[in-house]
Amino acid sequence: MRVRRTFAKWLVVLGVLHGMVVCAGFFAPYDPVEQDRQSPYLPPMRLHLLDAHGHLHVRPFVYALRLRESSFDQFEEDTTEPHPVKFFLRGARYRLLGFLPLRMHFFGGENTRIYLLGTDAYGRDQFSRLLFGGQVSLFAGLLGAGVTLFIGWSIGAVAGYYGGWRDSLLMRVAELFLALPWLYLLFALRAFLPLAVSPLEAFFLITAVLGAVGWARPARLVRGVVLSAKERDFVRAARGFGASNGYLLRRHILPETSSVLLTQAAILIPQYVLAEMTLSFLGLGVPEPVPSWGNLLSGLQQYSVLVSYWWMYLPALAMVPFFLGYLGLASSFEERGAVYKIESRIWGM
């Protein structure tokens, strides 16, 4: 009972976070590629409740930022005029869920632009880019994990159910894939594909590459479950009654693999999001101007950014709750008695 409750708790956490990313257009105040050339590398604005005179405001507000005197990169707050944060106001056009054209945004400023995580070199809002980047990264993770699980599941089921030469052949190939260092494999597979591609193509290439790399582990786990399931008494009984292979697999054996698949999904998705981040960070993934969690951080490869604009690092911290949610989900699956803990984690690095 307790296990089920923690499970539900993590599911809610993940649901909320993913909801924000899916509805990025609504929660982000600005368009992710909209540039504000007047204010490149603006530090994050603080939300205030107390103003400079010590008055308490019910509605949170920000101060506009201006250059400190005789400085070219140090900003200070202009405390003469507070700019209240408005909710549900009209702003940049976007399409909710890809089709619903809307202009309503969750929050924003009326006379000034509000940058919660600062801006990048082109004055683009980092907070908006974080949310929109999540659409790319999380979707790549989900899709990649889906592809991997599907391949691994089919191969594992065939190997486990039919056995014989098919089993030994498939499992030898799986061992090969397990022995490959997977980040290197990712590189090699990416090298296989053209370097200069459009953002959309890059996205699908990455997903396909990710999906193709990791099938060996789920295949082995599924095979193990199928092997034990096909010797169960009720399966033998069904076979004795004349059930066909297809029916047995569909009705009796594959349902047994669902818990393995769920656990693997909770482990694979964050792994693939990380892989997408790594590739994009190194410039092998989704190219600018489309934001992804990886290329959001790639500015930090420049020394000058590291020295002067530390807030470019904030998106990295903002991603942590997502990984926490998936870790929580995976460990609550594991508490339900799955024994795949050690192997999956070790190879999952």
């Binding site: 990380l274 981040m277 790594t278 960070f281 951080l297 930090l300 590291l306 530390w310 690092y313 990295a316 911290l317 991603m319 942590v320 990984f323 926490l324 870790l327």
Partner: peptide, 15 residues
Amino acid sequence: LLVIPDLAVALGLLV
């Protein structure tokens, strides 16, 4: 520590 990506750890240390 487990949920902070390696990339974030490394970049954070650099910062």
